[in-house]
Amino acid sequence: METLITILAGVLVTVATYLILSRSLIRVILGTAILSHAAHLLIMTMGGGLKIGSVPILGEGNGTFVDALPQALILTSIVISFAVTAVALVLAYRTYQETGTDKLDELRGMKHE
C-alpha cells in the first residue's frame, strides 16, 4: 500500500511539474495545487505503517493507533497550502487584469540591455 501511494504521489508530482513548466499562468497555479496533494499523501506514508492501528481518537478501537503526528502536520499544511493557493490565484487574476495576458513568456518583466 505504501509503495502504491508513493507511486501515486510520484505521478502527481510529475503531472504538477509538467504543469508548472507550462507557459500559461493558470496551468502553473493548478500545478502548485496538485503539488500539495502529493506532499500530503507523502507525509501520510511517512508515519508508522499505514492502516495499522485505529483512528487516532481515544476510545475508538483497541489500543494501537495510527501515527497521529503526520496527521497534525498535514492539517497545518493543508491550511497553509489553501492560503497560498488563494493568494496565488488572486495574483494570477490581478496579473491578467493588469497586463492582459496570462502567458508567462509575455510577462518577462523589465528588459535590460
Binding site: I20, T32, A39, L91, A92, T95, E98, T99, R108
Partner: peptide, 19 residues
C-alpha cells in the same frame, strides 16, 4: 504591472520551494 509580473515568478518559485 512590473510588480505583478515579477511577483508571479517570485510566488511560484517560492511555492515550489516550500513544497
Amino acid at each position: 504591472k512590473a510588480q505583478l509580473s515579477e511577483s508571479v515568478k517570485y510566488v511560484v518559485i517560492n511555492v515550489v520551494s516550500s513544497w
